[in-house]
């Protein structure tokens, strides 16, 4: 790809032609504060936090500004600082000050820009504080929507539109009363939302937050067991329990995306009802048994039922290799073609 050279705060950078100034900066390890930008989405330019000065005269947002050969960018110009500071101060003045009890504390983009810009108690004191008082939409079993924390970056709206093509949410009302909402502003469960949680995963603050989101002590790389797509997942583990799942952005299959089952359907792993050992029926009662005992019983019974009286149904939740073996076993050993596969869940 053709490269162009530009200067950001005195540093000469090479960037791909067609990329934006913000992309060029981030790719080169330079942080320009931003809120509404997300690498998976078309830049929207709404938060105005990523303002820069171009060629010493023009104020522009860097997330939509294409790089040009010889371009000179300043991120610390006094005018840039002024606009950026007011913008972030306005956001903070309208945001609840409940950081310590917030699920996104220490992992919040608003906190990050606020501390970068240097918001102080003194500078905030001058503002009229006002936090939106709207009921939390907790209708969804997996996540809550808290409008008081929403910064209206639009990432959720764009995710639902650009990535998922569901369009369950959009902006409703106008001006300071603008919120993200569903058609008719009904609870999220009464919309066409499929609870995939892609928006929740991208929300820079805690306006969209999982109902339970304990921080994991370690992550285990795995593959989702729900269907044949084989999405890469990272299981969040705490103690001996799986407490969360996130999509693996490095996995070429799903590049971080997950569906409702892969993201939220993990509680079976530690569920008390889950079978962890084979059960064998003795005197009409299922009792725990060893694998050897169980397999012997199965083999003994199977051998008496070869041919048309036998059928096998395989599961999508096992691997392709295991599925292959089952059909081979059914045809070669059990001598029947009565083999099917659920292939769907």
């Amino acid at each position: 790809m053709k490269k162009v050279t530009l200067t950001i705060d005195g540093l000469q950078l090479r960037a791909d032609e067609g990329s934006t100034v913000l992309q060029a900066a981030l790719a080169n390890g330079l942080y320009i504060p931003n809120l509404c930008n997300h690498p998976d989405l078309v830049p929207a330019g709404l938060c105005r936090v990523c303002v820069v000065k171009v060629d010493d005269w023009k104020i522009s947002i860097s997330c939509k500004l294409p790089v040009k050969e010889g371009m000179v960018i300043s991120t610390e110009d006094p005018e840039v600082q002024r606009i950026r500071k007011s913008t972030v101060e306005l956001l903070v003045a309208n945001h609840p000050m409940t950081c310590l009890t917030c699920s996104r504390d220490a992992n919040c983009e608003l906190q990050r820009v606020a501390s970068y810009v240097g918001i102080t108690q003194e500078s905030l004191k001058r503002y009229r504080r006002s936090v939106r008082q709207l009921p939390i939409d907790s209708s969804n079993p997996f996540f809550d929507i808290d409008h008081s924390k929403c910064v209206l970056c639009g990432i959720c709206v764009r995710t639902c539109d650009e990535l998922q093509n569901i369009n369950a949410i959009d902006y409703v009302r106008r001006g300071v009363h603008t919120t993200v909402g569903t058609l008719g502003n009904k609870p999220i469960t009464q919309s066409c939302c499929e609870s995939c949680g892609e928006c929740v995963a991208r929300c820079p603050v805690a306006a969209l937050a999982p109902k339970e989101s304990p921080i994991s002590m370690r992550e285990v790389k795995s593959v989702c067991t729900y269907c044949g797509v084989g999405c890469g997942i990272l299981l969040g583990v705490r103690g001996e329990k799986v407490v969360g799942v996130r999509g693996d952005r490095d996995n070429p299959v799903n590049r971080g995306s997950l569906c409702v089952k892969g993201r939220y359907g993990f509680k079976f792993i530690n569920h008390p009802d889950r079978l962890t050992t084979p059960l064998v029926r003795k005197d009409g009662v299922l009792v725990p048994a060893s694998w050897d005992e169980a397999l012997e019983r199965v083999a003994a019974n199977f051998s008496e039922h070869k041919g048309e009286q036998f059928a096998a149904l395989a599961s999508a939740r096992i691997t392709n290799e295991d599925n292959y073996l089952i059909q081979k076993f059914t045809r070669a050993v059990m001598q029947t073609n009565n083999i099917d596969h659920c292939a769907r869940l």
Binding site: G45, C47, R48, L90, L91, A93, R174, G175, V176, T178
Partner: peptide, 14 residues
Amino acid sequence: SCGQCVPCRLGTKQ
């Protein structure tokens, strides 16, 4: 205000 950008949405209110 249409409400999409921060300076206009929150600035005019402030």
